[in-house]
């Protein structure tokens, strides 16, 4: 995997090779690859001269450091109680129907991954979701359909 090696090396050059650089490097990998593979983790361990188990532990601890392949657009819908009370279930159902996948899955064309997430801090404007790093709030069936159709056309 020469590309991964190059990517990790570049990120280590940018962020440094101390323990404190681990998370920025892992975030850098997510930005490029959308997930951190075992090969990427090994490379990080090599670059930082650090135990691979430690890298794995850090990567699995944070939900936003994905360790499984993800689509180009990762949709994270807030699963906490306020959004739930404001109709999150209907939004999930709409998303599942539109994308023909269940929560936790990725579309065959690797374009979308549908996930649930803990509180996004948009309780006053629920239900809310995040697509990659862009938040969308006060969702209803029509709004979420429009948003997704825009992404499909992209």
């Amino acid at each position: 995997m020469p590309e991964i090696k190059e990517l990790v090396k570049g990120l280590a050059d940018k962020h440094g090779r101390g323990r404190e650089s681990l998370i920025p490097i892992l975030q850098g990998i997510i930005a490029e690859e959308r997930y951190i593979s075992d090969a990427a983790m090994s490379e990080v361990a090599v670059e930082l001269d650090m135990s691979a188990a430690l890298v794995y532990g850090t990567a699995t601890f944070y939900s936003f450091l994905d360790t499984e392949p993800r689509g180009k657009y990762v949709i994270r819908i807030c699963k906490t109680i306020t959004c739930d009370m404001k109709g999150k279930k209907q939004i999930v159902k709409t998303l599942e129907d539109l994308l023909k996948i269940k929560v936790g899955e990725t579309t065959k064309d690797n374009k979308f991954t549908l996930l649930e997430t803990n509180c996004l801090g948009w309780c006053h404007k629920g239900p809310a979701m995040l697509i990659n790093s862009i938040p969308y709030d006060t969702l209803d069936v029509n709004k979420v359909t429009e948003i997704i159709m825009d992404y499909i056309r992209k």
Partner: peptide, 28 residues
């Protein structure tokens, strides 16, 4: 100074794990 074992995942999922949960035989 080996750290073949680390802490992976969090909360109720937290476990003591090798790299990628490989068997102990295959790690450092």
């Amino acid at each position: 100074h080996v750290s073949a074992l680390g802490v992976a995942y969090k909360g109720d999922q937290m476990k003591i794990s090798t790299f990628f949960e490989h068997p102990m035989l295959d790690v450092v």
